[in-house]
């Protein structure tokens, strides 16, 4: 989903343009320093491939068809840094030659598709493939890449104050979910077809340093503990729709849980209730991932 000009508020486009420019600048320097000299043609021609691959239709039944978006596929074939540069080049051509996406909104589109979309698509592949779950990793990579990019676009539009009734938001999220599953399936099909043709073409980038993992973990802890305090107290799209339809009060929980409404009921201070719930949630997800990572690869190998 390409955001055109005129939709984003000044703080949103200013922050995203500055953030994207700095990130792409740093990535370009890093890719140039690690890439063999004079390999710009490879990146450019692979960008042209992403355009061309959209001509190849994948039948999905009922007379409908889908096509490859390519963020995750580029990430696992060129490495995530180079893929971000290629996706940015694609967005520049789309904005300037095909009027798909705005020029002032380029930072937002780069952030959604070339940075978040590519890296979100690469991480499931990197970690699941390492544990022997390659097919799942590639599928999830494609799916998460598309879902992450479209959800970020919606979030930026909402942050900019673009009105979106609950029903429209619900339908949009449903459409995004279906397209993401489709992107995951297409990415997996094309990935394994490429690998059958020539395994040397699948070249994941170098492993990121431990420092990056530490930074990600620290960011997650900060977000989980402080993010909840900064979050809007307004209801989300579905809650608003339920409120407007007058059915919100009829909702009844089947059982009481200790972290209901994302708060620890036992804590005294409001900030402790929210921050504690965030940290417990984060620790639970981490523990669950750790168990799955230990258990699932063994099961597949057996």
């Amino acid at each position: 989903m390409h955001i055109p000009d005129g939709f984003l508020s000044t703080p949103v486009w200013a922050v995203l343009n500055a953030g994207s420019a700095l990130s792409i600048g740093a990535l370009a320097r890093r890719v140039e320093s690690t890439m063999e000299e004079g390999r710009a043609p490879l990146l450019g021609v692979m960008g042209a491939f992403v355009f061309a691959a959209q001509i190849v239709n994948f039948p999905v039944g009922a007379g409908a068809s889908g096509h490859l978006l390519g963020g995750a596929l580029m990430a696992v074939t060129l490495g995530p840094g180079a893929a971000s540069i290629v996706m940015t080049a694609i967005l520049v051509v789309q904005a300037l030659v095909f009027q798909d996406g705005g020029l002032l909104a380029l930072g937002a589109n780069v952030c959604n598709m070339a940075l978040a979309g590519v890296w979100a698509g690469y991480l499931p592949y990197k970690y699941l493939a390492a544990g022997g779950w390659r097919r799942t990793g590639v599928f999830l990579g494609g799916m998460v890449s598309a879902l992450c990019a479209s959800c970020l676009a919606i979030a930026e539009l909402r942050l900019s104050g673009v009105p979106m009734p609950g029903a429209v938001l619900g339908i949009s999220l449903g459409v995004f979910l279906v397209s993401s599953i489709l992107e995951g399936s297409i990415t997996a099909t094309v990935f394994f077809a490429i690998e059958r043709m020539n395994p040397a073409w699948i070249r994941p980038g170098p492993a990121e340093p431990r420092r990056l993992r530490g930074l990600l973990a620290a960011a997650a802890v900060v977000l989980a503990s402080i993010g909840g305090l900064l979050a809007s107290s307004l209801p989300d799209g579905l809650e608003k729709l339920a409120g407007d339809l007058g059915i919100a009060g009829q909702a009844r929980g089947l059982l009481d849980t200790p972290l209901a409404d994302y708060e620890i009921q036992a804590a005294a201070e409001p900030w402790m209730r929210k921050a504690g719930a965030g940290l417990i949630g984060l620790a639970s997800v981490w523990a669950l991932c750790l168990i799955l990572a230990r258990f699932l690869p063994r099961r597949e190998r057996s």
Binding site: I24, A40, P41, L43, I85, A89
Partner: peptide
């Protein structure tokens, strides 16, 4: 970045 400009030209 020069790499981005070159990539876009080849693309």
């Amino acid at each position: 970045p020069r790499l981005l400009v070159q990539t876009t030209q080849f693309l």
